[in-house]
Simulated scan of single mutants.
Amino acid sequence: MSSIGKIDKIDKIWFTRCPVPTASGLAYNLGWLTEELGDVGVLQDAPPELADRHFDHQLLGLFREGGNVPALAARSEGAQTRLVGLTWIEEWQVILVRPGSGITGAAGLKGARVALPAWAATRATSFPRAMALHGVKGALTQAGLTLDDVTFVEVAQPQPSVGALAGAAPLGAGPRSFSWPGIAELARGEVDAVYAKGARAVDQAREIGAVVAVDLDAHPDRRTRVNNGTPRPITVHEQLLTDHPDVVVAFLAQTLRAADWAADNLDGVRTILAQETRSGAEGVATAYRNGFHTSLHPDLSQERLDLLRIQKDFLLVHGFLAADVDLDAWVAREPLEQARLTLKAAA
């Protein structure tokens, strides 16, 4: 394996991920990425001019495992990236309402005022809006309803940053800091329902006494919960893959290794997740359940690609993509296949 110092034209390997369960995040926290690739930089800790590359992927040495909205938006705008893996992790996708609202299921959403985060400066950073829109659609579908059956109320979305992505609270934020868009408006009675996901949203829902009207995770059809993190892509710059395929394979091998480790270390995974999501133990336990730690392995199965295609088509229809994305041309299968062989040979 080439060391970081031997990589031509790349000053540093960077790693970025959202505050959610990922095998690559575990591999970093366990020290395995650094052992394999050298001094890996975490984009969350980078200067702002580099940190923004989380959204546009204009950084040659970047590995990104995160929401598919920024990844697809960047690709639709010409970013030279390749898709090298997809994960699917159930992470508490729900529709929240106030107690006593009378909304106790998907059918009760008909006519409701639903929070919809405002557009941000770019399509990629408008992922909270995309998440809410698709999450609500998934809930309505369960009752045979459509987006036309609710009234959307625009709410402010927090300024996206690599350090506070997808609902993670800013460092030092107190328990009453409602960073999930729509939570504050729900508490004030300005909206009737809010789409939310993840451990921080669990904590914030508890703080305002919100209750779950629709548990999207409970529905047997995965298509009803296709969203920004389901499935979640791993992407790399095309030039990195072309010039240094061994680096990409090494990264993926450590990711697979961490997924294997996670399957037998639930407590360890939850400890790391509590740190990454800045959530309490109860929030992590509620948000990530049903054996999630046994299914962190990335793959490029047809099922996951078909689910990503549903998301891509939804984003295109609703204006989150500058142009259509050819998923088949985006996929690079060989690195993950080689990573599996590498891990098997090392066993």
Rank of each mutant, 00 (worst) to 15 (best):
R225S: 01
A79M: 04
E65W: 05
A210Q: 04
G100M: 04
R340W: 03
T255F: 12
A118W: 00
A210T: 05
P70M: 08
L83C: 11
G5V: 07
E303H: 06
H318D: 14
V248K: 03
D306I: 00
H54S: 06
S126T: 13
G198M: 09
N227I: 00
A139I: 07
S161N: 06
Q142S: 13
R340V: 14
V20G: 00
F292M: 02
K137M: 12
T151R: 14
A196H: 09
D203V: 06
V42P: 01
F292T: 03
F127R: 02
P158C: 10
A124C: 08
A173R: 01
W32C: 00
R113M: 09
A339Q: 09
W180S: 00
N228C: 05
A347R: 13
D39Y: 01
R200Q: 05
Q58V: 02
P19D: 03
F178Q: 13
A322R: 12
A339S: 09
L316N: 05
E154R: 10
L296T: 12
L37D: 02
G163E: 13
K197H: 13
G189M: 08
W92K: 03
N227S: 15
Q275M: 10
L240V: 09
T151H: 11
Y195N: 00
E282L: 13
D148K: 09
G280V: 07
V155M: 12
E276I: 04
R222G: 01
A253Y: 00
K12P: 03
A115S: 11
L336H: 08
E337R: 13
L171F: 09
T230Y: 14
R289K: 14
Y288R: 04
A253R: 11
L96R: 04
D56H: 13
A345L: 10
A329R: 15
A164E: 13
L241E: 13
T271S: 15
P170F: 01
D326F: 08
R98C: 05
V331A: 11
H219K: 01
R53K: 14
L43M: 07
A124K: 08
W14Q: 04
V162T: 04
R53I: 04
V284H: 11
E154P: 13
G108S: 09
G5D: 13
Q157H: 12
L341G: 08
T87S: 15
L109Q: 09
E282F: 06
R278Y: 02
Q275L: 12
F152H: 04
E91R: 12
A23I: 01
D45N: 13
P70V: 12
Q58W: 09
V248W: 05
R82P: 00
A46V: 08
P21T: 05
Q93W: 02
N68C: 12
A329K: 13
E65I: 07
G167C: 01
K312I: 00
L316Q: 08
R82N: 07
F15E: 07
E190A: 11
V69N: 01
A339G: 08
I183W: 10
E154F: 02
D306G: 10
G209A: 05
L145D: 09
V236E: 00
L308M: 15
P19A: 02
